[in-house]
Amino acid sequence: MMNFVWLLAVETAEAVEEGGGLFDLDATLPLMAVQFVLLAVALNVLFYKPLGKVLDERDGYISSNQVDAAERLAKAEQIAKQYQQELAETRRQAQAVIAEAQEEAQKIAAQTVATAQQEAQAQREQVQRELDEQKNQAMATLEQQVDGLSQQILDKLLGSLAA
């Protein structure tokens, strides 16, 4: 282990003597910087711009769709509300029509009943009158017959008496 560390140190020292070493700054530095800038430019064209555009477009697409959807939802809700209102109105109208029809029907029924009662009353009265008349007639006939019979009885009594 010690041997190893020592060797490592020697190796590093040797490298430094050869002009190498860990902190050997040379033309690699500026060239690497240039290379990096070129990479940044290339990636900008190839990666950041197109994909960034896609991301932004998608954001726009999603938000516009969301706004659109919200608008449509509001419209749908409004239509539903209107429908409800119309429904209520129609129900009320139907109720009114039914009530009116019932009233009318009741009126007609009452009228019909009244007419029928009147007619019945009139017929009853007529029948009563006819009955009375016939009764009177019968009474008159009966009286006549009573008179005749009583005459006959009287005649018979008087005849036997005279005889």
Binding site: D24, T28, L29, M32, A33
Partner: peptide, 12 residues
């Protein structure tokens, strides 16, 4: 792993 690279990036 090379100091040139990291110094280049840091200077940039």
């Amino acid at each position: 792993n090379d100091i040139n690279t990291t110094v280049a990036l840091a200077l940039l």
